[in-house]
Design a binder for these strands. Structure first.
Ligand SMILES: [Mn+2]
Ligand SMILES: [Mn+2]
Ligand SMILES: [Mn+2]
Ligand SMILES: [Mn+2]
Lengths: 147, 147
DNA sequence: ATACGTGCAAAGTGTTTGCGACAGT
DNA sequence: ACTGTCGCAAACACTTTGCACGTAT
């Protein structure tokens, strides 16, 4: 379980398991969301009214350093964090109407991407692939609206 | 020629061709670079010592609105602008060592991307594809360094 | 007891804007 | 002359950090 792994990581690094960290981890790690610091901070305040923004901020950095979260930034230029569930890599489609984020993975696309990098003798370490447009729901709404 | 097209655009919109705009356009539009506002501002100061940062900033916005430049943002989170040469679409590989940007286009990748979007009933309007890693030069340097 | 962590507020950074003076038409 | 534009400086919108106090170990 994620929480135990985290505890081990903290111990190994000589870091402490505070109530704040424990609660943040419990709240964050099993979600499937792309949180801004602000968003997570707002949710945490409900459970721990005194918690500080900086604590949430620093705990997210910690989770990234520990390999339990990923930092992302989409077109709105706000830093977001998502819990890393497996060692899965995925890319994103973002609806510019409702903000919905659809995750996808496509092996063929990944292979093709690696091929393109190789063709340019580029040693690819990471990549970013994002689609922006309308999700199914919003596109349907648009079509209806026009009638 | 680009400059004439711009003049026509300005006239059509009731906007003015100032010395600042003229010089910025001359300097920027034929380059093949991805400028931050600051970078272009520094270069423009050499030709027009009194020019203001805000003028460069607003002129770049104007060029984007007019369809003569594209706004981009890579991993360093600074807004960049590149002159739009044809109606070409391209994606980028960015060297995390030297900052070199390699542009590429791959029809197969684009088609595959559209297919993936379609599979998810996502109406794709724009996309971002960036590779980060080492360019050929920097990768070779790294290999030599290790010997 | 000893650091590490917290909450607050301040500082940092790049982006954007209000405004009075200036200049293209 | 009439506006649009300029340069400056201030405002913004986050993100990051310093510090005195609190707390896990
Ligand atoms: Mn991918
Ligand atoms: Mn995701
Ligand atoms: Mn593309
Ligand atoms: Mn480019």
């Amino acid at each position: 379980m994620k929480e135990q792994e985290l505890k081990d990581y903290l111990k190994e690094k000589g870091l402490r398991l505070t109530h704040q960290r424990e609660n943040i981890i419990k709240h964050f790690c099993d979600k499937n969301k792309h949180y801004t610091v602000e968003e997570l901070y707002e949710e945490m305040k409900k459970e721990m009214p005194g918690i500080g923004f900086a604590t949430v901020y620093r705990t997210l950095q910690l989770l990234v350093a520990a390999g339990f979260a990923l930092e992302r930034r989409f077109k709105d230029d706000v830093t977001r964090f998502e819990p890393l569930h497996k060692n899965d890599h995925h890319d994103h489609m973002i609806c510019i109407e409702c903000g919905r984020i659809i995750e996808f993975e496509n092996k063929k696309l990944e292979r093709l991407k690696d091929g393109v990098a190789k063709k340019h003798n580029f040693c690819i370490l990471l990549h970013k692939l994002e689609f922006y447009g309308y999700c199914e729901k919003c596109r349907n709404k648009k079509i209806k609206g026009k009638k």
